[in-house]
């Protein structure tokens, strides 16, 4: 086996039997979308993990810049009132 640089990389998302949303499970190489779905089926659903597959060309995914982590994700850190745990739940409330 050789690593083939001709075939683009694809990201694979699966929706499980009881899952509501597709979740990222990994990536693979394939020449086109059909092959990517077949390969995803063979690589990631061998133990009945999913009932729906999405594949997306990895090159089509735009990611946030790791260097921006501070400005992007730190500001909410001191805004605890955004978490539901900030509020006290009345004792007689039936959940």
């Amino acid at each position: 086996m050789t690593a083939n640089s001709d075939w683009p990389l694809w990201e694979v998302f699966l929706r499980g039997r009881r899952g509501l949303a597709h979740q990222h499970v990994g990536s693979l190489h394939a020449a086109d979308p059909e092959m990517a779905i077949q390969n995803a089926r063979d690589l990631y659903t061998r133990r009945g993990e999913g009932i729906s597959i999405w594949v997306v060309r990895s090159a089509e995914i735009h990611a946030s810049d790791p260097d921006d982590q501070g400005p992007l994700f730190d500001p909410p850190a001191d805004k605890i009132y955004r978490h539901p745990t900030f509020y006290e739940v009345p004792e007689d409330l039936q959940l």
Binding site: M1, T2, L28, N39
Partner: peptide, 12 residues
Amino acid sequence: TAHAPEFEEDVA
């Protein structure tokens, strides 16, 4: 097995 042209095809 272990001789297919691609890893993905190997598993397939």
